[in-house]
Structure formats: structure tokens, C-alpha cells
Design a protein around this nucleic acid. Sequence first.
DNA 1: GTGAAAGCGCTAACAG
DNA 2: CTGTTAGCGCTTTCAC
Lengths: 325, 325
Amino acid sequence: MAVTLADVARAAEVSTSTVSRALTRPDRVDERTRTRVLDTVRVLGYRPNRAARSLITGRTGSIGVVVPDLTNPFFPDVVAGIQGRAHERALTTLLADSGEDPDAERDLLATLAPQVDGLILCGSRLPGAELAAAAGRSRIVLVNRAQPGLAAVTVDNGGGARQAVEHLRALGHRRIGLIPGPPTSHSARQRSEGARRAAADCGAELVELAPAPPTFDGGEDAADAVLRTGVSGVLTYNDAVAIGLMHRLRGYGVEIPAELSVVGFDDVQVARMACPPLTTLRFPRRDAGRLAVERLLHLIDGEPAEDPDPLPTQLVVRGSTSRHR
Amino acid sequence: MAVTLADVARAAEVSTSTVSRALTRPDRVDERTRTRVLDTVRVLGYRPNRAARSLITGRTGSIGVVVPDLTNPFFPDVVAGIQGRAHERALTTLLADSGEDPDAERDLLATLAPQVDGLILCGSRLPGAELAAAAGRSRIVLVNRAQPGLAAVTVDNGGGARQAVEHLRALGHRRIGLIPGPPTSHSARQRSEGARRAAADCGAELVELAPAPPTFDGGEDAADAVLRTGVSGVLTYNDAVAIGLMHRLRGYGVEIPAELSVVGFDDVQVARMACPPLTTLRFPRRDAGRLAVERLLHLIDGEPAEDPDPLPTQLVVRGSTSRHR
DNA sequence: GTGAAAGCGCTAACAG
DNA sequence: CTGTTAGCGCTTTCAC
């Protein structure tokens, strides 16, 4: 029923191979035949059958993307970057959500891998060894997660945490609380580590609290602990935690930033909608997505391509931080 | 390099057709040969080549999903529902974001359609005629958008708006403002219409403002207009608008809900994080997604399937509404 | 119940 | 520069 290559060939009075070439290797075809073929293609409304093409080339023309949680406003931006670039490169994206569950992620990886030319794994929760193994079977690019030997687009998490601590220190805060993220998260560990080093360097005392789930609820539940430590400034793993924390604290009647300064991480959309608007760290999420596609294309073409520098983070100062006292 | 059907056939000492049958029509194969084949499949780690299968069956085993804006926290939940159900049905999802741009949506539709067995269009911005035409070429299910003759999963938007108005009226508000959504949006029109009817029915005066972009910024920009009308309660097209509005108003020193009650729509995650927490309307977004997949599968199997009832909306009362005066 | 044979629509050598 | 010839890996008649 659909128009096939053979139909075009017949109509243009050439062989199927010529039509195929005119479409995939225009330079290998005489200009006059080429235009004739291309015209018939247009007239007949021919659309190549991707399955047939894949079958022979081994390429699918799509890439797979796995994110831990689409509901986390962090990821849609990365995805937007990925899809934008992929679209420009005439690639389709298969997007899947692992729900932050390593088992689900493994499963998705297995089902996606054979259907795509390569995979972009955002904030993967899989153990390094498993990632390395998977990378042997398919082309993989990591986002916001590093693994020796694997291609990755990373963020300067440590540097961001440093900026946060220095900012608080500059405002006069000496004792600074830290609500770390999930210990399984690579970026969480980097952020904590960066904060630790920065505190040591600038003469602040870092009070590390228990790790919290990286969510609004996680932040709410951490409020009591923060209060107990008596710190005057606190840095959280991400914005969701910061906002949950502020929310609960406001309920307690704690004035922010007068009594406590709060710094988030990621600058998700809601950061500026919070009350008070949240001081946080921003990095170019869309660019991260675009870059990841670029890296993946390199991998697919078998080019070497060294890992680029981590993407820079930038402090965005809003109303949730102020001078101590 | 990969294990093929022929490899399995050789190892199990049967023909390729038997292997194929054992996999796709287990009942048409003798039990003993079947287990033997299935065992070899497992041992060899055989995975059917989807391209080859598609080429012959005409099915791709995937469905396409188009949303207007992944960044809008409304959609990830719907998508989660879709992906969950699709996964259970062994379908892969191709997810794309149209950026609320009808041209982009048209484009996506064209590229996605040939690669999938069917499409789920969430809150499509395309004109009805175009949708109808597209539905002629591919199987399509609409979500939160209705179009005569097309399969759809809808939400009781009108009923939701009615609940909002009645809630405000019950609290003593007589003059109620309405910030409508984009006129191109089907759900926006339904919500406005529902509010109008409810106001007429319960003796409230509905003051309709100019439509706002369905975003935080749109809400902020509508603040002046709301103030000018002097209404004591206001209903917005969605939560983002409500939160933007409250944000700006707080900046003006307006007390919410003491001076103005605000009701949103959708109950996105940030609704409860807003200050004050937002009274809003909730409906089962995940279920909407799951249902959409179900409907699509019916379509694909050529079953008739009548349209189900709109999904019910439910008022969630929080701190942004209170008694008038 | 099982196998042989014939393609699905396309690309990629290989000759000419 | 173009056509001929083989398949890619799988499903599906059609005989047996």
C-alpha cells in the first residue's frame, strides 16, 4: 500500500539502486537523473521504510534516553536539549523513566539497547561495573555521572558547592549545615565533597546532617535536624530539598533568611517561585543535553573524542540568603 | 554477530519457522519441541531483531507520544502513566515535546507516525480538521482534547471549574475573577465555560480577564489586572498561573487568602509547595495516561471501543482560599 | 506439528 | 554513473 523504492524506480525509469543512491549518496549520481528521481520521490510521496533500512544498515536512526525521574524538573530541560539536537540530526529519541530504581533502569537498558544506535543515561544509578559492561555492548554517554573509561557530560558539582559555601561564608556564616543527597548518587557525593573542601579552605565549620531523599518531602523531614544543629546557613543537595526545608521551617515560624540562610542546587523553575525565592546553583542543562548527543554521535561514528570539561555552575543569588545577624 | 533465528534453529535442530512459531504462536507447536526451542533461546541469549520483524509484520512495537511541554509538571505524570502501561504491554514509547508550537507538532507527527503503531497526542494544539486527517493515516488517541470521531481520554474540565466557583461562592465570594488559558487550548475553553455556567447557577458574578499564557510569568503579568477588578476570589486556568499570580501579589503586599482567594487547576506538585499552599483541582493524570494506552491498543487491534466518561476532577482545598471578609 | 520456500523494502558489493 | 545480484532476519503461506 505504501510507496516503495521499486515504485519510484519504475516511475523514474531507473533501477532501485539508483533511487537508493540518489537518496543516500546524492553525489554518486548524475545530476540529471538525481533530480528526476528526487522529483518522482516527491510526486509519489515516497517515504523510506525505516525497518527495511535498519535491517540492512544495522542503524536505527534513534537514540535512547533514560532519566531517573521526569517529574523532577531538572530532567525535562536536559531532555529538551537532547531532543532538540537529536531532531536537528534527524534522530528520533526513545525516552524512558527509571523511577530512580536501578532494577528498572537495568531493564530499560536491556530493552532499549537493541532498538537504538546509542544511549544517553542521565544520572544513572547503576553500579560502575555494570555501566562498563553495558558500554561494551552499546554506545553509551553518561550525563551528570562519571565512570572511568565511559564517555560523559559532567557538571562541576564540586565547584558549585564551593561557591555556595563561599557565598555563605562571605555573608558572615561560620557554621554551615549540609543536607546531602542519596549516597548512591554520584553528583550528591561530589557536591558534599566540594562543600567539605570549601569549608575547610575558608574557615567555616560544616555540619553534615543525614542524607535526605532528593525531594520536597525529604527537605521537610530534615527541618527538625537543621534546627537542632543551630547553624545559621544551610546548603542542600538540590532545590527540591531546599524548598521542602523552607516550607516546613516557615510553618515553624522561622524567618528565612533573617534567621537561616538556605542555598539549593540546580536552579529548577520553582526555585524562583519559592518564598523566599531560592539562592541556588545553575548550570546549563539544555547544553548538557545537546552535548551528550554530540558525544554520542562521535561514539557512533567511531571517533575518539576526549571528554570535555565539566560544565560550569553559577551561583544565582536570590532572597533565601542574607547576612548573618 | 548477534544471535539470529537461524542460530537457534540450528542449535535446537529444528527449522527457523518452528523457532519463529514457538516464539509468536506457542500453541501451534508441540510442547516438547517448544520447551526445547525456548531453552535454546535462553541459552543462546537470542533477542529477535525488531527491524526484521517489523519489515514483515508492519508493526513496530512502539507508540508515539507528543506533549506540548515536558517542563510543565502536568505532563510527566501523564507520561509516567503511558510509559507504565506501555511497558506492561511490551511497547516502547517514543516521546516528543512540541514546545506548544503547532508547527513543531505537525512536524513531529509526520516523523513519528511512520515509526510507530499508534500515537497519543496530549493537549494537541492542532486544528480539528488536521487531527481528523492524521487519524485517517495513523491510529491516534487524544488526551485532554476532544475531537468528534477521534478516540480520546478527556477530563471533566467543566465540572472542575464548577467546583472551584461553588467553593468560592460557598466561602462568601460574590465577584469572582477568571484568568482564562490560551484560546487555542481545548481544555482552557472548557474550564472557562464551566466557570461561566457555574457562576450563573450559583449567583456569582464572573469577571473574565484577558487570557494569560499558561505559565508562571503569565500569572505574574495578570496580577495588575486582577487587582484592578477588585474581585475577592480568582480562578486561574492552571496552577502555574495561580502561583505566578500569588507571587507577584505577595510582592505587592496583598495578603492571600485574607484579601484574595486563589484557586488553581491541575494540582501539580508545586501547588502544595506554594505559599500559601494552593487550593486547586486534581484529576488522575497517571490514569489518564494508562487509559490512553488502553484505548490505543484497542484501536490497533481494530476493536470498536466507545469513548469512556471524562475523568473526574476533585477539589483540593489548601491555604489559598478562605472566607470572604 | 513441522519444514521449505518466498519474500517484506531496502542497501551494498560488483560488474559493466 | 548505472544496473544486476544478493542478501539483512524474520514471518508466513503451503505442502507434507
